[in-house]
Simulated scan of single mutants.
Amino acid sequence: MKTTKTQLKFVEWFSAEDMHLASKQWLSELTFLKDEQLFFEDLIRKYIFELIAPDQFNKTTKIVESLSSSRKKTDELIKIVQAHERGLEVMVDGVDQVIEEEVYKNEHRRLIIEVNEFLKEYQGLKETLFDTIKKIAKSEKKRLNE
């Protein structure tokens, strides 16, 4: 008798409450990021003359473009997560809709990946921006103390 190797695929089961809480958490984080992005834009305006210096210009341009792209992506994700949250009704309406529920769960899985990747990229942008501003602020302070 031949035995065949069977691979089991782990499928995480999401409860409606878990998905609701995750969506609320994403919205909270994304809303905070939106405010944080406004702060970064103000910070850039404060140091604009130092940031457009010839030695910083290319780096600054990339940071400003990344921040702008990040703001657009944040707005887009907020809309997507809000729509996803409104769609949760299919999971809690008491009607057995296997296909629609599976579509909703797959969308939730996709959003987990998309939001986490965005947050990871955004963290990198923040680090770059802070490092750049910190260097400029230190050199500005040093210049003023001379």
Results as ranks from 00 to 15, higher is better:
L77H: 03
K46S: 06
E127Y: 07
W26S: 00
F57L: 15
F40Y: 14
I136T: 02
K46E: 07
T128W: 06
S15C: 00
E140T: 14
L27I: 03
T6Y: 11
T6I: 15
I52D: 10
P54R: 12
L144V: 15
L88A: 05
I80N: 02
V64Q: 07
E41S: 14
L33Y: 14
L119H: 00
D55I: 13
Q97R: 10
E102I: 10
L43W: 04
D131C: 10
K46V: 05
E12L: 13
I112N: 12
I99Q: 09
V92C: 02
Q7G: 04
S70M: 01
Q82M: 09
H84M: 03
S66C: 10
A16H: 06
T4K: 11
E100P: 03
F118K: 01
L125G: 04
Y104R: 07
K72G: 13
H84G: 02
T31P: 05
T6F: 14
V103S: 09
Q123T: 12
L125K: 05
V92G: 05
F32T: 08
Q25F: 09
E41M: 13
D35A: 13
M19I: 11
L119V: 06
V81A: 03
T6P: 03
K126S: 06
Q7A: 07
D131A: 12
S70Y: 01
E140R: 15
I112S: 09
L27Y: 00
N106I: 01
I113V: 14
R143P: 04
H108K: 01
E114F: 07
H20R: 11
L144S: 11
F118N: 04
D55L: 11
N116Q: 14
E36D: 12
D55F: 11
Y122V: 03
K9Y: 10
F130S: 10
G87I: 04
I63H: 01
K59A: 14
T74W: 02
K142P: 01
S70E: 00
D131F: 10
F32C: 09
L77T: 03
R109N: 10
I99E: 13
K34Q: 14
Y47R: 11
M19V: 10
L119P: 02
L88F: 10
E121P: 05
M19S: 01
L88D: 06
V92Y: 00
P54K: 15
V103T: 09
K79Y: 05
R109C: 07
H108G: 01
V90W: 02
Q7F: 14
N116L: 12
F49T: 13
V90C: 02
S139L: 08
L38W: 12
F49L: 13
Q25I: 07
E29G: 03
L27Q: 00
E29F: 06
R143M: 14
L144R: 15
L27R: 02
T3I: 12
A53M: 08
A137P: 03
S69V: 11
L88R: 09
E102P: 01
F40G: 02
H20F: 09
W13A: 11
K126D: 03
K126C: 09
I99R: 08
S69K: 14
K126Y: 07
A16L: 00
